[in-house]
Amino acid sequence: MTSPGPLLPPVEVALARAVPSLPVAREGQRLAYEPKFDGHRLVIFRLEDAVRMQARSGRIVTRAFPDLEAAARPLPPGTVLDGEVVVWAGGRTDFASVQKRAFAATGSRAARLARELPASYAAFDLLAQGGEDLRPLPYAQRRARLMALLEPLGPPLQAVPMTTDPELAATWYEALTAIGVEGLVVKNLDEPYRAGRHWRKVRHAETRDAVVVGVVGPRLRPRSLALVLPGDDDPVVSSPLSPAVRAQLAAALRELPEAEPPAPPGELPTALDTVGTRITYRPIPPELTVEVRQESTVRHAATTVTRLRVGE
């Protein structure tokens, strides 16, 4: 296979669509099952003289992960990995800690957080090697190359576990909740890597965690929240908060410092709400985690906050 040149950021990433039950292979089909880590999607580019890291949105976030940048330097130039950043705490993945890492605004803060909350990288695909674009290859071939590449390196860069045995996959689906893994991603071993929702995912819970990065309305009594969901870095605006959730949030928001530096009203960031309208929000430090429920509407997913997670 030939390539017109090295694969460079940004690249559009492959995504998964939700399905209600664990898929099984049809006749002539070969499936792979992988744990679904709720972390921060990250594409790692080992260039000739540097390492670059791209979030799902295409934003370059290398500065936020100095530990992973150092870990990626031994990779051969021309390598491009796709995977998820996770932080382990108490034997479980901790999505809130991942977001603290991802939103580190300065080099000094990123370095401190790298010491306090060291990141691991769960690689699930190899998009390029030696400058060769591997995306057209079947996943089975990309997976074999990924394993051969990462096995000599070891943590914090590791390939996610994978099985082609549906019975073992079912066991994983039930057992891995103990370490914070809420589901599986299912891929066709014969398919190339394509942007869009060609993979499938199945989850245990209808709810998931999200990190609060901003408020819409008064700071201590917000109407809605700007949230970052697992695997994404583009904030979304929640549905209007219930009175009970507003009451829960009031005390927690009062204890948070203002974002530094506070943005003038005309320069506030925006995020999409449940009908696709861009809404301005006031940034806050990514210290609060909420439980959310997502429901599909005609055009967008409505994100409803069900409760504030406290001390969990």
Results as ranks from 00 to 15, higher is better:
Gly183Thr: 05
Gly183Ala: 02
Leu184Asp: 01
Val185Arg: 03
Val186Gln: 11
Val186Ser: 11
Val186Trp: 10
Lys187His: 08
Asn188His: 15
Asn188Lys: 14
Asn188Gly: 15
Asn188Pro: 08
Asn188Gln: 15
Leu189Trp: 05
Leu189Lys: 04
Leu189Thr: 05
Leu189Tyr: 02
Glu191Lys: 08
Glu191Ser: 14
Glu191Cys: 02
Pro192Cys: 09
Tyr193Ile: 10
Tyr193Met: 10
Tyr193Thr: 10
Arg194Ser: 12
Arg194Lys: 15
Arg194Ile: 05
Ala195Cys: 03
Ala195Tyr: 02
Ala195Met: 02
Gly196Tyr: 03
Gly196Glu: 05
Gly196Met: 03
Arg197Val: 01
His198Glu: 12
His198Tyr: 15
Trp199Ile: 09
Arg200Asn: 10
Arg200Ala: 14
Arg200Phe: 12
Lys201Pro: 10
Lys201Trp: 07
Lys201Asp: 08
Val202Ser: 05
Val202Gln: 06
Arg203Thr: 14
Arg203Trp: 05
Arg203Phe: 05
Arg203Asn: 08
His204Glu: 01
His204Gly: 00
His204Arg: 13
Ala205Ser: 13
Ala205Ile: 00
Ala205Gly: 06
Glu206Asn: 10
Thr207Arg: 11
Thr207Tyr: 04
Arg208Met: 15
Arg208Tyr: 07
Arg208Cys: 13
Arg208Asp: 13
Asp209Ala: 12
Asp209Thr: 11
Asp209Trp: 01
Ala210Lys: 00
Ala210Phe: 00
Ala210Cys: 02
Ala210Asn: 01
Val211Glu: 11
Val212Asn: 00
Val213Ser: 04
Val213Thr: 08
Val213Ile: 14
Gly214Cys: 02
Gly214Lys: 01
Gly214Arg: 02
Val215Trp: 03
Val215Pro: 06
Val215Asp: 02
Val215Gly: 03
Val216Thr: 02
Val216Asn: 03
Val216Phe: 03
Val216Lys: 02
Gly217Ile: 07
Gly217Pro: 07
Gly217His: 06
Pro218Gly: 11
Pro218Phe: 07
Arg219Asp: 09
Arg219Phe: 08
Arg219Gln: 11
Arg219Tyr: 07
Leu220Arg: 14
Leu220Asp: 12
Arg221His: 12
Arg221Ile: 07
Arg221Pro: 00
Pro222Phe: 08
Pro222Met: 07
Pro222Asn: 08
Pro222Cys: 09
Pro222Leu: 09
